[in-house]
């Protein structure tokens, strides 16, 4: 049962990533693309956590934590650049 649930979750998240890439390609404005990137890193964290459960290791937890922190910081930096024209004034 767990293997089937893992497969279902992986396929849903891969489909979500494909839709994010499509929005990243067609997004009419810059904030649309930024929103697509923001969603992509959250989905990547989900994929990494599922890979950790699939391989039965705890090693991938640190990778997920790093992606969470760097994704938030980079989204904030790009937002600030678009709002102010500068990141650190």
């Amino acid at each position: 049962m767990l293997a089937i649930a893992l497969w279902i979750a992986i396929s849903f998240i891969v489909l979500a990533l494909a839709m994010n890439i499509y929005r990243l390609a067609i997004g009419p404005d810059i904030p649309d693309r930024l929103l697509a990137l923001d969603t992509m890193y959250v989905n990547a964290i989900a994929l990494i956590v599922i890979a950790g459960m699939w391989l039965n290791t705890k090693t991938y937890f640190e990778a997920a934590m790093l992606i969470a922190m760097l994704g938030f910081v980079s989204t904030m930096a790009i937002c600030r650049y678009l709002l102010r024209g500068d990141i650190i004034e």
């Binding site: 849903f12 839709m19 929005r23 599922i50």
Partner: peptide, 29 residues
């Protein structure tokens, strides 16, 4: 435990899929 983990995994995948589907389908930013 297996039942709980499986249900949470499928629910999580479904919610992530719904979020991206909404981002693809809605009309403005």
């Amino acid at each position: 435990a297996e039942l709980i983990v499986s249900v949470l995994l499928v629910l999580g995948g479904l919610f992530a899929f719904t979020g991206s589907l909404g981002m693809l389908q809605f009309k403005d930013f």
